[in-house]
Amino acid sequence: MRLSIDVMLDYTIDGEADVLLLIEAAKGADQRLELQDLRVYSPEPLRAVPGEDGIGQRCWARGKGAFRAEYKAVVEILRTPVDFSSLGDTPIRLMPPETIPYLLPSRYCESDRLEGFVTQEFGGLAAGPLATALTAWVAEHLTYASGASSGTTTALMTFAERRGVCRDYAHLLVALARAGGIPARCVSAYAPGVDPPDFHAVAELWIGGGWHLVDATRMASCGNLVRVAVGRDATDIAFMTVFGGATLNQQTVSVTPL
């Protein structure tokens, strides 16, 4: 699948502040950038830095008053769906060292508080079969509701409320997977058909010797997701972080199949 991506961010910065942008599609073996163009109206030169795990890149900018960023890209997605139920288990002690941070609790994914639930509800399952069951549980037990959560909502809060947006679905699935011994990380992404159109958040689970994208909202599949960045939770994958105050004027995200 080929996707056209068009993003516009229009903010007013209170005074002057550093801005960290994370909106560029990542290059990778499973997605190819045919073209991309990032334009940021900043009083100082931009500075690019690598994203978490070397996936994608962040961009430092300086905001002063009116701040606008525009991003356009065409991306070809090369990955194909995988049947999780056929993926085998890897003992934790034999997993690659880069998976270790994604086995541990983080600020918004309190996996240690969900271990009892996973053991009770999914005991006897591991790896692919467990990932399949956890994804289905989150999809079936949460209700997608815009405005139902905030930037401080954690996986445990979503588990109690049983509703949220894509960020909350991703946090809960990641926390449950980690509680079950599956390395899991959050992923910011672009996808067509997201309602309302916006930046999207999904999970990525390490099973069967590799990372696999999962969207528990069921709005997208691995075959039409464009990975932007990865991290422990939403803290690491925010599309824009302002080290100061800012007011949103307008923001649009359009993802169209070609």
Rank of each mutant, 00 (worst) to 15 (best):
E161G: 02
V118T: 06
R163M: 11
F122W: 04
D168Y: 02
L103C: 05
T135F: 04
A126T: 14
Q120P: 01
G124Y: 03
C166I: 15
D112M: 04
A133F: 02
G128I: 04
Y144I: 07
L104D: 00
F159P: 04
Y169K: 04
T143Y: 02
L142H: 02
A148Y: 04
T154R: 03
T135S: 13
E161M: 07
R163Q: 15
V165L: 05
W137S: 11
G116M: 10
P129Y: 06
V138T: 08
A127Q: 02
E161P: 07
Y102C: 04
E140C: 06
R113V: 08
A145K: 01
Y144N: 03
V118S: 04
A155I: 00
V165G: 01
C166N: 06
V118L: 07
E110R: 14
G151I: 06
S150I: 00
T119N: 14
W137F: 12
E110H: 14
S111F: 02
P105V: 10
T135A: 13
R107Y: 04
R162H: 13
Y144F: 13
E121G: 04
L104F: 14
V118Q: 15
V165P: 01
A148G: 08
L114M: 07
G128Q: 00
L156F: 11
W137D: 09
V118F: 06
G128M: 09
Y108L: 08
G151W: 00
A139I: 10
V165Q: 02
G116V: 06
A148D: 02
M157C: 07
T158E: 10
Y102I: 03
H141E: 15
S111Q: 04
A127E: 07
S146Y: 07
S150Y: 07
A148M: 11
D168N: 03
S146H: 01
Y102E: 11
A145F: 11
R113G: 10
E115A: 15
A133K: 00
A160I: 09
E110M: 08
T143M: 08
A133R: 04
V118W: 00
Y169P: 08
S106E: 12
L114Y: 12
A127I: 10
L130E: 11
G151L: 10
S149W: 03
A126G: 08
T158V: 09
C109A: 12
G164T: 01
V138S: 11
G151E: 00
A145E: 13
E140Q: 11
T119Q: 15
A127G: 06
L130Q: 11
L130H: 03
S149G: 13
G151R: 00
E161D: 12
G124Q: 10
T154S: 07
H141Q: 15
A139R: 13
Y169L: 14
T119D: 05
E121V: 09
G123C: 07
S111L: 03
R167H: 09
L104V: 01
S106H: 11
G147C: 03
A148H: 00
V118A: 01
T119C: 02
L104R: 14
E115Y: 02
D112L: 06
W137M: 05
R167N: 12
R162G: 12
F117G: 05
F122R: 01
R162F: 14
G147W: 00
V138R: 08
M157Q: 14
M157N: 01
L130N: 10
T119L: 05
G164V: 02
P101C: 09
A126I: 13
A131Y: 06
P101N: 10
Y169H: 03
G123W: 00
T152I: 13
S146V: 14
A160R: 10
C109W: 00
S106P: 10
